[in-house]
Design a protein around this nucleic acid. Structure first.
Lengths: 252, 252
DNA sequence: TTATTTTAACTAACCGGTTAATCAATGACA
DNA sequence: TGTCATTGATTAACCGGTTAGTTAAAATAA
């Protein structure tokens, strides 16, 4: 229609502010948690008045849920791409392990939010996550189960439980990033430096190759091949705080 | 001397209340996090006046640090016992994996606090944990490095990086408990039920046995032997809230 | 003008921390 | 051994800053 350009400016500007708020919320919540986050800070960081948060989202809780959903959706998007049937079952698993590592690496906020959500879950209160999980996480797990059972059946993989594969894969990656800040104090190196990340990524996949495959050497070779095919993405540096000092004029 | 019984009442009662406060704090902080925890709730749950918290600990922060330290100390205590030199390197690793699982299982609060600490670490503010980590966690990692390199040298273990062993072992266990509440929504079973726990414990060690050992079958057998030697401890049920309704008498 | 978007100013509740007072065990002393 | 000042443990009541959420009015675009 003609409406394509008529109702643009207004609607779009609003949409933009909404997005700006959401991005600011993601930043705030991922670094401070739900109860630690401050709505004033979010507003300031989004360069809008606090009341606007409540215009778009009816409560802090709601904004939090929206933030989690936003970032989760963005991340889960192409997680299933690595499960193309042109790969063998073992290759699918290794690829998805690498993909998982890279996903955490490039989307640190997601990781933080998820960790907090998981802790929050403990105490009973279910965010808006169950739905999201059923739609995003379950298909992924299903693919992994399929691949594992497939690989075991054909003999490519050493007989093992599919859940164990999931826990080993996700667990090692998640724990690496989870423990990284602490490990700095324990290890004589910085776990989040590009060099360390590169090494970790490599040996994680190599280990999986050697652990999962019946023919260990073949598994390791496969891991190396995949590592060459999937270079490490650059991590966006989200850690640095970008405080926006907004000068508020006040009529005297 | 005789003082053993004379000077009891006063000092001991105080010590008891202090402990009661600490326990309540651990409960509160582990379920709500630092910023989510409420000092009023801690006081109520410890059946003392809020001011008493500040009599014993100078701030909420301080109380939090004390809580973490307390629980961490209690947990790390006999983590090194499994590294007795009478076991082979591989056996030491498998035992320590099982021990780690059981430790998380029986000390859920520790796990929660640690997770939160790790998240907190992200944002820069280092609790009182670095010290604790250097003294408690580092020796454990050192033992694991030693065992891994030992086992690889003698040929008992398949050649691999020691850090990878650590991340696989800890990672899988931590992630299991971390993701458990969410998994309930995804899997057709309850991950924290005794039955599921038993199964998970078993296949985690079996997997490690098959993954780490050069002779996979031998590794699996070793895992089974250790499983028989180390039965699963009962988890203290700390999840249920035990609200103590204290009736305060008031003189009219 | 009119509907939508954005803001400044405000409020009520909450929450960490303080204060001043009370209670009870202890120890000194006659 | 009984009396009383001392001191450690504990409490009720309060304070002031913070923070989620509201309101009513202004700005903006159609």
């Amino acid at each position: 229609m003609t409406s394509a350009t008529t109702n643009r400016t207004r609607h779009d500007r609003a949409d933009q502010t909404r997005k700006r708020i959401l991005r600011a919320a993601v930043r705030e919540f991922s670094t401070h948690g739900l109860s630690g986050a401050r709505t004033d800070r979010i507003a300031e960081s989004a360069r809008v008045n606090k009341a606007l948060l409540y215009y778009y989202f009816k409560s802090k809780q709601d904004l939090y849920a929206a933030a989690v959903e936003e970032v989760a959706g963005r991340v889960m998007e192409n997680a299933l791409a690595e499960f193309d049937q042109k790969y063998t079952a073992g290759e699918r698993l290794l690829r998805s392990a690498l993909h998982h590592f890279d996903r955490i690496l490039t989307q640190r906020e997601f990781q933080s939010l998820m960790q907090q959500e998981m802790v929050r879950f403990q105490s009973g209160k279910s965010g808006s996550i169950p739905v999201l999980f059923k739609t995003a996480f379950m298909p992924l797990m299903e693919k992994m189960r399929e691949a594992t059972e497939d690989g075991v059946r054909t003999g490519e993989l050493y007989p093992m439980e599919w859940l164990q594969v999931i826990y080993s894969m996700f667990g090692a990656n998640v724990f690496y990033f989870l423990s990284a800040p602490m490990m700095e104090f324990v290890l004589p190196m910085e776990p989040l430096s590009p060099k360390a990340l590169q090494m970790r990524r490599k040996s994680a996949v190599q280990f999986l190759g050697a652990a999962l495959f019946t023919d260990r050497a073949a598994g390791r070779r496969m891991a190396n091949r995949i590592l060459r095919a999937m270079p490490m993405p650059r991590a966006r540096n989200l850690q640095k705080r970008m405080e926006t000092f907004q000068v508020r004029r006040r009529a005297l």
